[in-house]
Design a protein around this nucleic acid. Structure first.
Lengths: 189, 189
DNA sequence: GTCTATAGGATGATAGAC
DNA sequence: GTCTATCATCCTATAGAC
């Protein structure tokens, strides 16, 4: 356990509060109080509330982008690529579960450059999954249903996984990966 | 086109703004300005900001509860019941697409009684889907995978459908129902 | 039904002492 | 690195004129 820097401590405290009430309902005073200091002291470590949000969101967004780049440049069938996407998505969810609510619900409160960066990364991510699905359909690995519905179903499930992971007493990650791949690829009937 | 009451107009204007920025980032001044009046005028039609949120959320939550009650009391196999759930979920999404962001992201800002009512309805809803899935597994209609993963996958997809329905140029509802049932039940490979 | 004026409090952020 | 004190602004909501 290396001692977390004060800045890191602010970010993690804030992410816990954002998770419960959302970015706009959490004040600098709330964050400071949760750390046992005064709001003005926070400004010795960060430039403002915006920096907390953008650090939180962009750090995780870059993880997703990295994971996707590895999958895209890997060899294998389209189905294998989707399996890899599901798996690294679960890994990131487990590692950054506290930050994901902000990424899903508070990204619109980013300003200018940060907002643009995030939206670009998110669009690229989605587009990469779309390409994998379409290649899979072309190669007859994936059923030729509406590709957007398949894309939407997979991404919706993965993006809100953090809501369930915590609630269900932190399921075993490998069991979760196996069941998730199975449910999303083979369906339930 | 019957002329919407002023109160209804407030609710729909607010839901549009909540959708873009979230409950806490929208002020009474914002809502009033979008209607071309002053914030103080709003209070002649509603008791406060909280009433807007609770009307918005509880109206839709009751629709989901009604839909679920009809499915639960209907005859048919478990798979048929899941199909019905998917279908009425899509119907509600199409009808109330402006209100769903608040239901998904701002319910925690409800107060006391309203919050309790909402959480109860939401838990009951989830529990009813869970029962249908477990009955389906017992009857060998549904594969005996982790029931919670199946539950989570279906509900995640349905609950965030509003995000996609608008973006994709409002897909035809019947095509959407058919493809969604197919993807969620039979999978993609 | 809408307005102006305003109360009463919370908010993000800064200055300067220790 | 934290504090107190404070600023300027925004917020929800009310009172009362028209």
């Amino acid at each position: 356990m290396k001692p977390a820097s004060r800045k890191t401590e602010i970010i993690t405290t804030a992410s816990r509060l954002f998770k419960e009430k959302g970015y706009n309902a959490v004040s600098m005073r709330d964050i400071a109080q949760a750390m046992g200091i005064k709001a003005s002291s926070l400004y010795n470590h960060i430039s403002g509330k915006q920096e907390i949000l953008s650090t939180l969101i962009l750090t995780v967004a870059r993880e997703f982008t990295n994971g996707m780049e590895q999958v895209v440049s890997s060899k294998g069938t389209s189905v294998e690529k989707i399996e890899k996407i599901i798996e690294f998505h679960i890994d990131i969810t487990v590692t950054y579960s506290e930050a994901l609510p902000a990424l899903n619900n508070d990204w619109m409160h980013l300003k200018e450059d940060d907002l643009q960066q995030f939206v670009n990364m998110r669009d690229d991510y989605e587009q990469n999954v779309r390409i994998v699905i379409k290649e899979g359909i072309k190669a007859n690995e994936i059923e030729a249903r509406h590709p957007e519905v398949i894309l939407f179903s997979i991404l919706s499930t993965l993006r809100t996984l953090y809501l369930w992971y915590e609630k269900r007493g932190k399921l075993d990650v490998n069991v979760l990966k196996r069941d998730m791949v199975s449910v999303l690829l083979q369906g339930i009937v």
